[in-house]
Structure formats: C-alpha cells, structure tokens
C-alpha cells in the first residue's frame, strides 16, 4: 500500500513538473473514470457484506470433511463465491492447515478466493463485458483446480 502511494505521489510530482496542464487533464480523467465505476464497487461491497455472513466455522467445517475430493470441490466453490482481504484469508488458511485440512484443499480455497470473483462481477463486466467476464472466471476456476491438484500431488496427499 505504501508502495502504491509512493508511486502515485512521485508520478504526480514529476508529471506536474513536466507539464502542468497535462497533469490537470490526467486528474480529470482519473476522476471521471473513478466516478463512473464507483456504483460497481459499492455493489461489490454490498454483495461481499452479505456473502461473508458465511462464518469461518462453516468454512472449516466444509473444507475439513473426510473426503479429499469433496473438500477440493467445497474449497473451489467457497473460494469462488467469497472474497476476503489477505489479512483475513491467509491467517484463516493457516488455521485450516493446523486443523489438518490438506494443502490441496487450502490451495483450492486461497486460489479461487483471489482468481474467481462471483462478487466482483459488477465491476469486471463494466471493463470486459459479460462474455469475457464469464469466460475468464470459468477459465480461472479450471486453473485453480489444476493448481490445487498439483499441490496435492507435490505434498503426496493424493494418489
């Protein structure tokens, strides 16, 4: 986050030194783009606040079941529909591993959490259109499944 502010700050200063008018134009462009997509981000916030009613206990319960493959499927689906900031998701992943959930299932969960965004649909479709959004998410779901299974193989959890 600091890195982002630093980059934006330095870029803004340099831009102002080189061309003041162009910088004003850039800020206008930034504001226009931001205000246009703002409703999309607010929609994501509302969706997430509802989706995250799924408690951590529920997630531990579904991912920690006896069947590896059922756990994998639950991990992929729960990761796809929910969304969490890193400071919540990684400690949660740590708890899952401690509770004996396999690395394969944890990988399925954290990877889809980042890659597949059912909740981010309102913003993604504004930038990529319905078709590309749906296809990208389906492809990401498959990629996440491959990564998870590979993880299971490397850790010797499957086969």
């Amino acid at each position: 986050m600091k890195f982002l502010y630093l980059t934006a700050g330095i870029a803004l200063v340099l831009s102002t030194i080189f061309d003041y008018k162009k910088t004003i134009k850039a800020l206008k462009v930034a504001w226009k783009k931001f205000s246009k997509i703002l409703p999309g981000y607010i929609k994501i916030l509302i969706i997430i606040s509802i989706v995250l009613l799924i408690s951590e206990d529920t997630i531990v319960y579904y991912l920690g079941g006896n069947s590896q493959w059922l756990g994998l499927l639950s991990g992929l689906i729960l990761g796809s529909v929910t969304m969490m900031p890193g400071f919540i998701s990684y400690p949660l992943a740590g708890i899952l591993v401690e509770k004996g959930v396999s690395y394969m299932v944890v990988a399925a969960f954290v990877t889809t959490l980042m890659m597949v965004g059912v909740a981010t649909y309102p913003v993604e479709k504004e930038y990529y259109g319905h078709k590309a959004t749906i296809i990208r998410n389906v492809a990401s779901f498959i990629i996440a499944a491959i990564i998870a299974i590979a993880m299971g193989l490397f850790y010797g959890e499957v086969l």
Partner: peptide, 29 residues
Amino acid sequence: MWGNFKIFAWDMIKLLPPAFILIGLFNVW
C-alpha cells in the same frame, strides 16, 4: 454485514484513489 462492509470499504478507500490517479496519468502520458 456492517462489519464486513466496513472492512472492505476501508480497503477500497485506501486503494482506489492512488490507483485511479496512476490510471489517469497513464492515460495522458
């Protein structure tokens, strides 16, 4: 729900302004 909303809203408030400033600069430069 309000608790969940707050966590993410705060994240976005911090993240989006510098990100869009960079997008704006990218756009003109």
